[in-house]
């Protein structure tokens, strides 16, 4: 169980950043995963008063606020038209509607969780993150950055030059964490293969020419946990990459 001494609904990003420099304080996204911790925090920093709950679009990017919920991502027409419903497919199996109404995109991305469907998709879309602190950083780079930084994630920027993207995941049972998650995108830089829930956090491999499913499997490391073995994950990965390639 978690406890807080104080709660602050930040009135500016500067205030949120300032408060977040104290190690005992924490930014509350949807609080779905945070509340599973066993920890006493000083101040809970809430970004919900900063208007970060919208998906905006300009010529270059979809700009997704950190407090946009997974359900908003699932239902957003323009973003789903752009991703050919990959956005919807990446979140629709996550727990239930009420959960997705509360869980935030910012929380999913900031956590860089091993099980994250959202991270897997956004990597294939070659997204960038906008941080108070480090500025605008490629998401792929962000996943490798220290988990101990005290930056504030403001938005996720999705460039609009992806030609096509497909998202597929395998679950032992509907609404559970994925056993394996795959997103494949056709982009001006080539084919992007993002594989998550290996069970480590998602990573990406890009190639000028389409890779065979076997080549993709060999480009990633896989592990075992209670949901599936390493060998099983490799097999599932091969099948999902092959299917995604056919669907692209």
């Amino acid at each position: 169980m978690i406890t807080f001494k104080n709660y602050v609904r930040a009135e500016s990003l500067e205030e949120a950043y300032e408060l977040n420099q104290k190690k005992n304080n924490v930014i509350v996204g949807g609080m779905m995963w945070l509340k599973m911790m066993d920890k006493n925090f000083g101040t809970a920093i809430d970004l919900s008063g900063l208007g970060l709950d919208t998906i905006e679009e300009d010529d270059e990017y979809f700009r997704i606020g950190a407090m946009v919920t997974l359900r908003q991502l699932e239902l957003h027409e323009a973003f789903n038209a752009y991703t050919k419903c990959a956005a919807k497919h990446s979140v629709e199996h996550i727990v239930g509607v009420q959960f997705r109404n509360t869980a935030t995109v910012g929380g999913s991305i900031y956590g860089r969780f091993g099980f994250s469907d959202v991270l897997t998709l956004f990597l294939a879309l070659r997204a960038k993150v906008e941080l108070v602190g480090a500025g605008i950083v490629d998401l792929a780079e962000f996943t490798e950055m220290s988990r101990k930084d005290r930056d504030v994630l403001v938005r996720i920027l999705v460039p609009k030059d992806t030609e096509s993207v497909v998202y597929l995941s395998q679950r032992n049972i509907s609404t559970d964490f994925p056993v394996l998650a795959v997103a494949v995108a056709k982009t001006p830089e080539g084919c992007c293969y993002s594989v998550g829930a290996r069970p480590h956090y998602a990573k990406i491999v890009t190639s000028k020419e389409p890779m065979s499913a076997e080549e993709v499997v060999n480009a990633f490391s896989f592990g075992s946990n209670t949901r599936a073995s390493r060998e099983y994950r490799k097999k599932v990965c091969e099948v999902l990459v092959k299917r995604a390639g056919e669907m692209l």
């Binding site: 709660y7 609080m31 509340k35 809970a44 809430d46 727990v95 509360t102």
Partner: peptide, 23 residues
């Protein structure tokens, strides 16, 4: 945050009240 028993409507939207701060 899994069972849905604590569902309430917040501004008309169903949410899990076990995972939302009263604040």
């Amino acid at each position: 945050s899994n069972c849905g028993l604590c569902t309430v409507l917040m501004d008309g939207t169903p949410v899990l009240s076990c995972s939302v701060l009263a604040a």
